[in-house]
Design a protein around this nucleic acid. Sequence first.
DNA 1: TTGTAAGCGTTATCAG
DNA 2: CTGATAACGCTTACAA
Lengths: 363, 363
Amino acid sequence: MAEQPVAKARRGRPRQAEVARLAGVSQTTVSLVLSGNKQGIALHPDTRARVLEAARQLGYAPDPAARRLAAARNDLLGVFSFTATFPTDVAHSYYPILVGVEQEAVARGYDLVLFTGSSAAPGRGGGGAAELNRVRLADGCLFLGRHVPADPLRRLVEQGYPAVHIGRRDELEGLAWVGADYAAATAEVVRRLAALGHRRMVLVCESDQALASVDRERGFRAALGEGELARASDAGPGPVVRVADPAAEITASWVRARLAEGVTAFVAEETDTCAAWRALVAAVDAAGLTAPADLSLALLGAPPADLAGRTEPTGFDVPKAELGAAAVRTLTALLTEGGADCSPLVPCAFRSGHTAGPPPPAP
Amino acid sequence: MAEQPVAKARRGRPRQAEVARLAGVSQTTVSLVLSGNKQGIALHPDTRARVLEAARQLGYAPDPAARRLAAARNDLLGVFSFTATFPTDVAHSYYPILVGVEQEAVARGYDLVLFTGSSAAPGRGGGGAAELNRVRLADGCLFLGRHVPADPLRRLVEQGYPAVHIGRRDELEGLAWVGADYAAATAEVVRRLAALGHRRMVLVCESDQALASVDRERGFRAALGEGELARASDAGPGPVVRVADPAAEITASWVRARLAEGVTAFVAEETDTCAAWRALVAAVDAAGLTAPADLSLALLGAPPADLAGRTEPTGFDVPKAELGAAAVRTLTALLTEGGADCSPLVPCAFRSGHTAGPPPPAP
DNA sequence: TTGTAAGCGTTATCAG
DNA sequence: CTGATAACGCTTACAA
């Protein structure tokens, strides 16, 4: 007696064939009706109606794997992050970006598949590759964070898989990406400070050499190079200070020394820890000074959550939701037209805040 | 001139057949070697080595779509919420639950598909029904929030689709669910208050008749029924007050009136707005009283984000991440064994806080 | 206007 | 131990 074939998990899932039987048509017709009949093939309205009714009755939903295998598409967009997409440590979470991704994806009729790279065994060679390969189930994929292993990603891209990286990533030739325009936003902050009357300002960077950090420094230097700021910034030590241990190096006396040199504005960048900004605020406080009365402060990015209650820093906000939405737009452009030519840079919004004002009159 | 068939994204990707040719074996053998040979079929080590080498050389990576199609499962867990999965209004977001869902899903080798109720063509059709059917794309699905339409959900479940509801949902026969054990947690709070010496306490409910609210009231009454609390709570007006407009009804004079009746502890439940708790805190404040010196306060749940800075309320926390993880466990049990018999109730952790203490000595 | 049939890349079943 | 061969559910020429 022949064994019953292994009961597949797919058990109750209705397929096109069953819809076809119920509607009294062929499976092909069901496919035509249900996939929107892109071929422009003429279908009898009654047939169409019967098929739709049958599908509704059976609760039919297409199998994404089969759809994809048959060389069509899934209408699934992948979101891959090497670390957990929803970290327990809410601090540097992708949540705000995902808000934008979801909105834009929904608006365009895509569902989202979350591929979380197992953070386990990052050492092994084949490990990362296999992880990344899963995303092929989706029509295209968004990649989050700069920890996405470059090599497997490159292979994906080389083989023509539609991928968009969120955050600048131009080391990989041919990989599309969207990122915040840190350089322009930083330059804008410098210009605003200059407009307030500041002539000498200093940027405090952490030694972390993230791409975003490089961009900010570039924007900072570029804006300093404009007009009379150029001359002013030539004097004294460089306008950019890179510190390994902000809390130890950025002290009250350090601040006083800079003030004595004629610096009137201090700028720090947002990082995971915001150590530089924290140090700056603490040092100013310790020196018995107040912003914006005695000096001006600006933060290139958003303050950390635990400082949310304090005075809103002058600076800019990265439009994270917009970043996610832009990524989805770029990806869908890749999917449909095959080429996205819109700028990958998303502008940041200047935030007036309350830590910058005109420099105090020279003593 | 015949059009080239639509260029498949599949472009130069190596397949098992090519690996087989290179290794000089059959494609079946390649599949056996590469998929770990779960069948336990004996393979010659040399063959194995040759296949692996060929695969490596070609940079072979299995096509997840094909793999899943053949295996009759796609290792996808759906997450459906009627409202957006990532609400812009972060206040009552599912984030903490998703943290647990993701962790557990990753640990079990599943990927997540996010569906949103709003995702459908917002136009006509079966409305929620058609919407819900889309989840069939995943092997099983988690449902979030009590706004999931009951009827389509019932059909899904009746047809054997593996579904787990997060939050109690026993109106639907056969629907698996996991939920916080509000009754037990509330009873625990009452017991703690009793242990501190409180004999008469009152629960302030909002008129919203959520299941969670019912559970809490049940737990409250049950715990009151124990020991001498029973006698004490028999006197005066009932121990449970249900108010339509907390801000208007829970006033300083209301609090004083209760105190005069011998009530020494006030309990409110967490809701979306936390209106009852806010009203209670405001009323106590307006009466010039302080907790825990003059009376005790307890909050059945977590305080809203904007009150996070204030004194931590005594009460309990719903382990949201654990809830998500439990839901995933239940769902995967449904998927693999076909039956989950673990308790659907997740215990809540008592939170000592600082708003409860011994009742003041009687005047 | 509808049906037939040939794959898509993999897994699973058997007979060698 | 290996290799045909048949699904898996769907799309898409092409035939009727």
